[in-house]
């Protein structure tokens, strides 16, 4: 029971309230050559509206889309919304959060997190 409560408390720590509709971006996460890569879809989010942070092992992605429409444009049909994007991930301990790199390319944020040296598989030579 305490464990559940603790988990709930951890959850509330990373949540924030927003006064606009917010969305969780779709992601692709994969690992190759000791680097974990996360690709998040952030269409319509310019670089200056995007914030990527790592705090206490939690990677957070927060952004706001800017569709850049003229004021006279009224929406007549819609399949996607406009607003704030937010999603957070707990990083596994074996990754080095000091060396994270991120870039935004054509509406896709790519975050690269290398595996910590101590967590890499090493072959030990036998004498």
């Amino acid at each position: 029971m305490d464990a559940v409560k603790k988990k709930e408390a951890e959850k509330t720590e990373v949540e924030r309230t927003v006064d606009k509709p917010h969305f969780s971006p779709f992601v692709e996460i994969f690992e190759k050559d000791n680097v974990l890569r996360l690709a998040a879809e952030l269409p319509g989010v310019p670089k200056e509206n995007l914030e990527v942070t790592v705090d206490k092992g939690i990677l957070s992605i927060r952004g706001e889309s800017a569709l850049g429409l003229p004021d006279s444009a009224k929406q007549v049909y819609g399949e996607f919304g406009e607003g704030v994007f937010y999603r957070a991930f707990t990083l596994p301990e074996e990754y080095n959060s000091e060396r994270i790199e991120a870039r935004l390319d054509n509406g896709v944020l790519v975050v690269e997190i290398p595996k910590a040296e101590r967590a890499k598989r090493k072959k030990i030579s036998i004498q």
Binding site: P43, L67, S72, Y77
Partner: peptide, 29 residues
């Protein structure tokens, strides 16, 4: 449970007095 994106390239359609504007989400296209 996160959903997998089902709709490819969702669109919004807007109208101004002079033109129709279609916005399509195609991240990474």
């Amino acid at each position: 449970g996160w959903a997998r994106s089902e709709v490819k390239a969702p669109v919004n359609v807007y109208e101004s007095p002079e033109e129709y504007i279609v916005l399509m989400e195609a991240p990474g296209a």
